[in-house]
Design a binder for these strands. Structure first.
Lengths: 226, 226
DNA sequence: ACAAAATACAAACCCTCGGTATGTGATCCG
DNA sequence: CGGATCACATACCGAGGGTTTGTATTTTGT
């Protein structure tokens, strides 16, 4: 019965949903990604050779170039994975509250925590812009970390009232603050204490902003005098 | 009179203070530095080959390796020059006032202006940490830009009163703010307007901080409840 | 003034590393 | 079961950083 055999085949394929070859393939691809993530984190993009990556993954360059078109593409894949992982963690932490101020605090706290692991800082913050180019990197950031910060800040500013012309500037400012702060925390002898300091400092900044009568042009009402 | 000849020689040397050879040497060295600065700014460290640098300076690799021990050393020299140039410009702008708040504003304004030229951002901010390594880069920053920001912030916080345990955190936060803000300004379609926005936003933050009764632990009095 | 030493390069070569071209055994499909 | 395809392995190429060696010019010692 050739017909029944065919059906059985189909059923089995449908049940397993993957063939042995695909298993092997995705396994080696993951091995490449995992080892590359570690090596890129430890030695940077330029400091990591493909030979090291394929050796760590126990395959050859042939295998690598079967899965990735270039070293840069490998980095891009690693970058995307680390970034989306970090982003989703922060996003999840933020979602625990509805109050914009509390969301900001939760997000900051989580971000500082995540950044203690060097992966995100090294790959997404330090190497990213240089390896991918400023253009491509900013695009990715705008869709993840910068995006989160901007939306969070927008909510804060809306809660404060006033115009929106400074929203983008405030977003970039807090985005930079948080990036720098994460390095300060990660490099500190006592990261927990440093994290508390940073949260207190940013908390103070936010508390001060809540005391302002208005956000529109608080100083230097015009620049037509110099 | 061989003796008098010697004296003449000495006198001439002392008068000119440089020999012809030193003139040639420093000239080619400057050519290398200048062209490298431009190339590094345009294509980054890894994206610039030594062949391109020496071709632009119209010398050979032999000449280059006579003046610099490595490509990295060349970058380091370029880095130091750009950084100290920027630093001194900001420092000079700051020195125009004695009021800490005004000094902060002057420094920010000057920094944003200087960063519109891509040299400092590309070489000192983007490529620096990757090419030189985080360690060496942070050391240099601590002695220049970060140092200026920290001293400025210290003065602000002292003016506000309160303890000093958050000084370093505040310093890092504003340092990051300013770095990000400078990119926002430089990448903006209308840099002047963006600069105004940034100054207004940071002005608002500082204004808010002046309204705070105290800076010590403004929110989250303790972390022993979670 | 003249030889020796040092300087400021130039030219040719080497080695690592990203990328490519080609070969091959295992797997899938009809 | 036989061709097609996939998932690699191997051998090789060129670009680029770095080294070695050679050389013309200048400086120095006497």
């Amino acid at each position: 019965m050739p017909h029944s055999t065919k059906v059985v085949h189909k059923t089995l394929r449908a049940a397993r949903k993957t063939t042995r070859r695909q298993d092997y393939s995705s396994s080696t691809k993951r091995a490449l990604l995992d080892n590359a993530t570690k090596l890129f984190t430890d030695h940077g993009y330029a400091g990591t050779s493909l030979d090291e990556v394929v050796a760590a993954a126990r395959v050859t360059k042939g295998a690598f170039y079967h899965h990735f078109p270039s070293k840069l593409a490998l980095f891009e894949a690693v970058f995307d994975r680390v970034q989306s992982s970090t982003t989703s963690q922060v996003e999840k932490a933020i979602s625990a509250s509805k109050d914009p101020w509390e969301r900001a605090q939760l997000g900051l706290e989580k971000f500082l925590e995540v950044c203690r692991e060097p992966q995100f800082r090294r790959i997404c913050i330090q190497e990213g812009p240089v390896a991918l180019g400023h253009e491509r990197w900013q695009e990715a950031e705008k869709a993840s970390t910068l995006g989160i910060v901007q939306r969070t800040v927008d909510a804060l500013l809306e809660d404060l009232g006033g115009g929106e012309e400074l929203n983008e500037a405030f977003g970039m400012i807090f985005y930079g603050s948080i990036k720098s702060a994460s390095e300060y925390v990660a490099d500190a002898e006592d990261p927990s204490a440093a994290s508390e300091e940073v949260q207190a400092a940013i908390g103070a900044i936010l508390a001060g902003m809540r005391l302002l009568p208005t956000l529109d042009l608080p100083t230097a009402p015009a620049a037509n005098e110099a």
